[in-house]
Amino acid sequence: MPVPDRFRKTHSVLPGFGLALGVSVLSLSLIVLLPLSTLFWKSSGLGWSGFWQAVSAPRVVASYKLTFGAALAAAIVNGVFGFIVTWVLVRYRFPGRRLVDALVDFPFALPTAVAGITLTTLYAPNGWLGEPLARLGVKAAFTPLGVTIALTFIGLPFVVRTLQPVLESLDPEVEEAAASLGASRLQTIARVVLPALFPAWLTGVALAFARALGEYGSVVFIAGNMPMKTEITPLLIITKLEQYDYAGATAIAVVTLVASFSMLLAINRLQTWSARLGAAE
């Protein structure tokens, strides 16, 4: 009779389980869980009505709208261009392809403050890109458009790196089968390729969106930070902290955190769905 896998592993001959688990749980508790728990401790001091007042003040709501809207717009731009970039990188061959492929991770690797001051300088009214835009009557820096540009920069690798392995592992025989059954190239892509890529694509877009919700360094320089107009939620948290309004800052932080964690939970579900879809093929 085969020994169940689970049973065998609990009686493993491998050493170090107690030590490894102890070190992990202890450091996790001290470095992550204990500090995070202070959020709930501090915001519970406000009571429900105080909490609601802090998170629904007009200036706070204006910052949610900006942060949420710009993050969504950036995620959509990345959804479109990230798909095209991935398609070109995986399916076509051109000189310098590997260099371009490595460069996609540049926004991951670049410190956010550097991204922030660079994009601001580029898109300022006298900048390399801001000046031609200004001549067209478009103001980029210090407007919601600038916020969207910074969030697009930050989010691009999420879409490409989530989609790329799935497109690479897509079996070409499926496309050949569709073609030999008389489908045109456009039909094959619309009916065979896109449905197979959809879960991974949506996961990538959602990851980019979730990252954008909390983003600070790359946005704060280009945003302009005008209350009610171009003030992002993370900046508002810092402003409250600097005014020693710790309870108010915490309340807004809890709202931000709940939004990000709900996104991550949804992404988790998406990945399970995506994996099941992959296994079914």
């Binding site: 500090p35 401790w41 979730a210 909390g214 983003e215 360094g217 993370p234 932080a253 931000t256």
Partner: peptide, 14 residues
């Protein structure tokens, strides 16, 4: 999943 701003803030609260 935590905004960098909140990651710093929790240590001030602590």
């Amino acid at each position: 999943g935590v905004s960098p701003v909140i990651s710093g803030m929790v240590f001030i609260l602590l």
